[in-house]
């Protein structure tokens, strides 16, 4: 196994994060904090409790998940897209490194950054909203699992994209709307019955629900279903990446 190679890619990607601290860390922390200020402190104080949880505390898992999905996708997609764009991908393709190791380097770095961001936002939210975490290990588990899964998804997007517009289109046009409609700001039980059924087709519902369960012990769907759906999505991504490397899709001609 080429551990030096995995480490080189991982550190290279993390170095980009440290070089662009404002964009990579400060910007998502500040923008998510604004949600806490507006929906948590300002509007939240006038909202009724949901499932016995204050509105400000209720939206924390969803907001972290919103940031986590977007950052995981954009970090991983950008990480593999840029070498394709600049032409430096030749070096990775010609190196004695397996597809699994390449993915471990890029996805590992993207997921690490997302997890760091998630924890930073969690700490920042404590400044605005009072909350507690019922199952901290489960919370870390969901955070890591989601970060890895959506970094894998981002890697696929980065390989697929042949322009910067395509790089942005799925996070902006699909993931963000699904997150907003996936129970970030409300409980699924608050929706009319028909929309409760429709919303179950939104995969983000399972992510937010499971993550919220780790905080407060309440969930829109059973935690096992949330975990199962996340794992299924992860396996789909792994399958697609395996196919990408097997065929060389948009990497090797």
């Amino acid at each position: 196994m080429n551990l030096h190679g995995v480490k080189a890619i991982y550190l290279f990607e993390m170095a980009r994060t440290w070089r662009t601290l404002m964009q990579s860390i400060a910007s998502p922390v500040i923008s998510t904090s604004l949600y806490f200020v507006v929906f948590g402190s300002a509007i939240g104080s006038r909202m009724v409790e949901i499932d016995g949880i204050s509105y400000g505390a209720f939206i924390i898992p969803g907001l972290i998940m919103l940031m986590l999905l977007n950052e995981s996708i954009s970090n991983a997609s950008f990480g593999i897209y840029m070498p394709k764009f600049t032409g430096t991908i030749y070096e990775v393709l010609s190196a004695p490194i397996s597809p699994l190791e390449i993915v471990a380097g890029y996805v590992g770095a993207a997921a690490s950054k997302s997890i760091i961001l998630g924890l930073l936002i969690l700490a920042t939210s404590r400044l605005f909203v009072d909350f507690s975490i019922a199952r901290p290990f489960a919370m870390i588990g969901f955070l890591a699992l989601t970060a890895v899964t959506f970094s894998l998804f981002g890697f696929i997007i980065g390989v697929w994209a042949d322009g910067f517009e395509k790089l942005q289109i799925i996070p902006m046009m699909i993931v963000t709307p699904l997150t907003f409609l996936g129970g970030t700001f409300y409980s699924v039980n608050m929706l009319p019955p028909v929309w409760q059924t429709v919303t179950l087709f939104n995969p983000v519902v399972y992510l937010v629900s499971g993550f919220r369960w780790s905080f407060y012990g309440v969930a829109d769907v059973h935690v096992a279903v949330s975990l199962g759906m996340t794992l299924v999505f992860m396996l789909v991504c792994v399958g697609l990446i395996t196919w990408i490397f097997k065929t060389g899709y948009r990497l090797r001609t």
Partner: peptide, 28 residues
């Protein structure tokens, strides 16, 4: 391999990019 095109990581330092290549090819 030295390819025909000048493909480099513009924002990296010379030292970092050469060490990256060494690591990528499995060398300590």
């Amino acid at each position: 391999l030295v390819p025909q095109e000048l493909s480099t990581d513009a924002f990296e330092t010379v030292w970092a990019t050469v060490n990256f290549s060494r690591g990528l090819f499995g060398k300590p």
